[in-house]
Design a binder for these strands. Structure first.
Lengths: 187, 187
DNA sequence: GTGACTCTGTAGCGAATGCTACGTCAGCTT
DNA sequence: AAGCTGACGTAGCATTCGCTACAGAGTCAC
């Protein structure tokens, strides 16, 4: 009655997406081999076979996360008309990142930042890739005619990251009040 | 020849400082009972005896970290003359936090933020206590005659946190350029 | 066929995890 | 003196950790 058990032939590429979904949902701290394998529909034995080491698995997984993040930004830049002012761009950014759907990714982001700060293998390259990508995206999205797109993008990057951190702690309103007081957000 | 082995009678209060030193040095992720006990000069058995549960231990430990942080801020506010401008205050903050001696605490901070974002028990109260304390400290340190001390403090808080995050990833210069472009830092 | 190679399942290793059972010993009260 | 209590050590439990040894099944070249 049952099919003759086809051969899926798992590879690193097919294993990474479900594992990424797992770490986004459960966190990197709880990412041990057996739960990861279960999420990917395989066994811990197979994960070691494909990646060699858990450390290499985490490195590859973080690189994959950075790649997906870059792809999301690339997709977002395609169908977007440029904002008129820096404030409008900032408001757009905060609206996107304040979306509750973004929260699981933000939880993962803080673990990546912490790992990068501690120098854990694979964390810093992934974090720098994502920050670098976001910075480039911001430069490309700066309002036309902006007097200093490079500096403005760096300002927005700093302000957005600070706001996201405070938002993760339940201080989103505090950050918003600060940005309004600083004239960075349109009223 | 040797003294008759005095009885130190460990309590929660005497155990917390060496454990805090341990988590600052090694991180919360590696904070299991036996290493923590070794750092405090006792055994895992005694940690459970005093705190009841590891979860309660972590909660108490984070509260203790928040208390020490608040005490440090209180000490810093005592012998400080007020800055002349917001930019000067911001420069002072970034100089303090850019100190390499602060880096181990920053590593711990990202773990606390991550735990708070995930809702781990004890993390969010500790993180909110520290952010709230820093915000109050900033309000008290705002330049005299500032038109909007409350809003300005919130702006500086957001900007400082964003800068610290980027600094932890090796993007300190990026944040600095942004703050200069935004006129928030004096040239 | 026969061997070589790739992929995968089962079983298990030694270490570390949080926590408990049990006993000891000092100091107190009665 | 007898008993109680709080502080501590020793030993161990069940579970999970990353990882390995070994065997089986499928495919391909010869």
């Amino acid at each position: 009655m049952n099919a003759p058990a086809r051969k899926p032939t798992m590879s690193r590429e097919t294993l990474l997406p479900p594992m990424m979904a797992h770490v986004i949902a459960e966190g990197l701290g709880q990412a041990s081999l057996r739960p990861l394998a279960k999420a990917a529909g395989t066994s811990d034995r197979m994960l070691i076979y494909h990646f060699g080491t858990k450390e290499q698995l985490v490195t590859d997984l973080l690189a994959h996360v950075a790649g997906v993040y870059a792809a999301v930004l690339d997709a977002a830049i395609a169908g977007a008309e440029p904002p008129a002012t820096r404030g409008e761009l900032l408001a757009r950014l905060l609206a996107q990142n304040g979306d509750p759907a973004m929260q699981p990714f933000l939880m993962l982001w803080w673990e990546i930042v912490g790992g990068a700060a501690r120098g854990l293998p694979g964390f810093r390259p992934a974090a720098q890739a994502m920050v670098g990508k976001l910075l480039g995206w911001l430069e490309a999205q700066m309002p036309p005619g902006d007097p200093d797109p490079a500096g403005g993008a760096r300002l927005l990057l700093t302000v957005v990251e600070g706001t996201l951190m405070l938002s993760s702690l339940g201080h989103a309103e505090t950050a918003r009040e600060g940005l309004l007081a600083g004239g960075l957000l349109p009223t």
